[in-house]
């Protein structure tokens, strides 16, 4: 099939807890997908399974036609899945540009001896990776912060930097975990535009988890809804908004199951 990534009846259990149960979803290349659901629905665990942080208890995980279930995270990253985190995980003591440059590590060709003797190959590689980092920073609108420490950036820019870093290994699939969390409306609008631009200009498939429904409904071409670890609905924005199961999951049906968002 032409799927870029696919989960087939993937389940993830922690002891008796069903974090994900029989989840199947397919992502086609070049599209922008949303993954929504109430807190604790198992959205982030899907990201963790896709990126190799957890191995699924059962079922299949395929990326570019290859099974990646249980593969080490750095190997999956090198295959072309990038991600950001719900709680920002930058390298705070490194500069902004160095944060992005760490992401080129796996593409580096110079070895330790090149580094120790500061060979031409090493210098050339450093220069080109700095240049590439600057290009990505320019794309994310962070170029004037290149020499600042990552930890000193305001929150919204840290989120952008995390995306810039995730783009470093040139991923084909980008997973964004609540990219708009903690951002003000202006920053959210900027970010929305950036995600759109990213998907169009770089032709990257994006899957994003988000609680900001306006953002999701605005930009996502296709939406998956999770509740209690299970996929309860998928479809276009309007279909999702009218789906009774989704409404039930978000607003609750009766008092015993009531669960507000």
């Amino acid at each position: 099939m032409a799927f870029i990534a696919e989960l087939k009846e993937m389940s993830l259990y922690f002891g008796g807890l069903k974090a994900n149960h029989q989840v199947s979803l397919q992502l086609f290349p070049g599209k922008l997908y949303g993954l929504i659901g109430p807190n604790g629905a198992g959205k982030t665990t899907i990201f963790n399974v896709l990126t190799g942080v957890y191995a699924p208890s059962s079922g299949e995980v395929r990326f570019l036609g290859k099974s990646v279930a249980g593969l080490a995270p750095y190997k999956i990253a090198r295959l072309g899945i990038g991600r950001t985190f719900q709680n920002i995980r930058l390298f705070k003591q490194l500069t902004v540009e160095a944060n992005v440059m760490t992401a080129f590590f796996s593409q580096g060709e110079s070895n330790l001896l090149d580094n120790l003797f500061a060979s031409q190959r090493f210098k050339r590689e450093e220069e080109s990776s700095r240049k590439r980092a600057h290009e990505l920073l320019k794309f994310m609108g962070l170029l004037n912060h290149a020499k600042d420490l990552a930890g000193s950036l305001p929150y919204g820019k840290q989120r952008k930097l995390e995306i810039a870093r995730a783009l470093g290994p040139a991923p084909k699939l980008l997973l964004l975990d609540e990219p708009a969390a903690g951002l003000n409306p202006t920053e959210t609008r900027e970010l929305t535009a950036l995600i759109g631009k990213l998907q169009q200009e770089k032709n990257i498939t994006v899957l994003l988890i988000e609680h900001d429904m306006r953002l999701v409904m605005d930009i996502c071409e296709f939406i998956f809804v999770l509740d209690n670890g299970e996929l309860i609905a998928k479809g276009k924005a309007q279909e999702i908004q009218q789906n009774p199961q989704v409404i039930a999951a978000y607003l609750g049906v009766d008092e015993s199951e009531g669960e507000g968002e």
Partner: peptide
């Protein structure tokens, strides 16, 4: 600084 983040950008810790 963050082993998990390093791992997920293709660095084998």
């Amino acid at each position: 600084e963050n082993e998990m983040a390093a791992n997920l950008i293709g660095i084998n810790p």
